[in-house]
């Protein structure tokens, strides 16, 4: 039966164990069963269900060195599902930010399914012995929530509660509702880099040699606090930090170049003392390569920055090439059109 189950294991992560705490069984059963019903032949489905009283597989993601098993093509398939999750979440509540979320789907997939060492279970705030991620541009919560749910932090079906009353999936990510995987409230822009620096310093104090990752919007870089943090990270040699920018050239009121030009962004980060990489944030192979390279550059006395060229709305043609879809929801027909462009690979929630 193992070969039959293997695709599911890729979906959950990379390396698989056959032990699982009983309280988690249901959660995995739901996604597991859904995958089976949609993707596998009925016969196999029956077999799997018959076996469902067996302990189910739990994913543990590994360091990059041991997680090569997640191939680029598999990552692309996951990213396609993440994109479906994004447009479905935003459509479901007719509110939220699809543009930046879609542009960052490849990044989140690479990070959560290939690059970071992280354990969804047991969840704890301190995350000692794990890599940490901070989303500073909190408005792209739909992509964050999808990546967290799809990598096992909470049930995938909870994505249906996005932005609705009493949800843990608040409009902007928060620790207030105790959602696993979220370590800081964000939404008010410009604050995440400082927080990540604090967490990176705590790792150093704890002799924990894991990495802290951040993501920022390019518009967000207009906030002065970002540059206070940038100065600190370089000046104090916070070299267990990999920051990334969603360099899509767009923000609410239009193109970044029209609203408030960032100038030579690479030169700015270099001048602030960072080790700067550039990549195409919507090309999975390039992205994975850049993230891998960034890891090799940690521990060398400088914080690392990856400027990721992305397209707002990437993957849904009518959401691309403008800032219009920064923060509006698709209607029913637009949802249909969008989903028609995004393959359902892991089963919709």
């Amino acid at each position: 039966m193992l070969p039959v189950i293997r695709p599911e294991l890729h979906f959950l992560g990379q390396n698989v164990q056959w032990t699982i705490p009983t309280e988690l069984e249901n959660r995995f059963l739901v996604t597991f069963e859904k995958f089976c019903t949609r993707t596998l032949p009925a016969v196999t489905h029956g077999l799997l269900l018959a076996a469902s009283n067996l302990p189910l597989p739990m994913a543990t993601t590994q360091t990059a060195s041991s997680s090569k098993s997640t191939s680029i093509s598999e990552l692309k398939r996951i990213a396609s599902q993440v994109r479906r999750d994004i447009v479905r979440q935003v459509h479901g509540v007719q509110s939220g930010h699809p543009g930046g979320s879609l542009g960052c789907a490849d990044f989140f997939t690479a990070l959560y399914f290939h690059i970071m060492k992280h354990d969804p279970e047991p969840w704890d705030m301190d995350g000692k012995g794990q890599d940490l991620f901070f989303l500073s541009n909190g408005h792209i919560s739909p992509v964050f929530y999808s990546a967290l749910a799809r990598s096992g932090y909470f049930p995938v079906k909870e994505l249906a509660t996005f932005r609705k009353l009493d949800t843990r999936l608040q409009g902007h990510p928060t620790t207030h509702e105790g959602l696993p995987g979220v370590r800081m409230a964000s939404g008010s822009l410009g604050q995440g880099l400082s927080v990540a620096i604090g967490a990176a310093l705590a790792k150093k104090l704890n002799n924990d040699d894991h990495i802290v990752y951040t993501l920022h919007g390019d518009g967000e870089l207009q906030e002065g606090q970002i540059w206070e943090a940038a100065m600190f990270a370089a000046g104090k040699k916070v070299d267990n930090l990999i920051s990334t920018v969603d360099y899509n050239g767009r923000q609410i009121d239009g193109d970044v170049d029209d609203v408030m030009p960032l100038g030579d962004l690479k030169a700015k980060w270099v001048a602030f003392g960072w080790d700067v990489l550039e990549t195409n944030g919507n090309d999975m192979a390039q992205l994975v390569n850049a993230l891998g390279q960034a890891k090799t550059r940690t521990g060398k006395g400088k914080p690392v920055m990856i400027l990721m060229r992305t397209e707002m709305g990437q993957g849904v043609d009518f959401m691309m090439n403008s800032h219009e879809w920064h923060g509006i929801a698709p209607n029913d027909q637009q949802l249909k059109d969008a989903l028609g462009q995004l393959e359902e690979t892991l089963g919709d929630y």
């Binding site: 518009g219 207009q222 002065g224 609410i252 029209d258 408030m260």
Partner: peptide, 28 residues
């Protein structure tokens, strides 16, 4: 960076010289 949300478009359009887009930089 919130012209539409604040409904400042009409002012911006008719008095462009007296309108300043500062970007996402409220303290500034």
């Amino acid at each position: 960076d919130l012209i539409g949300s604040l409904k400042m478009d009409a002012f911006k359009k008719d008095f462009p010289d007296r309108f300043f887009q500062v970007g996402i930089a409220e303290a500034n």
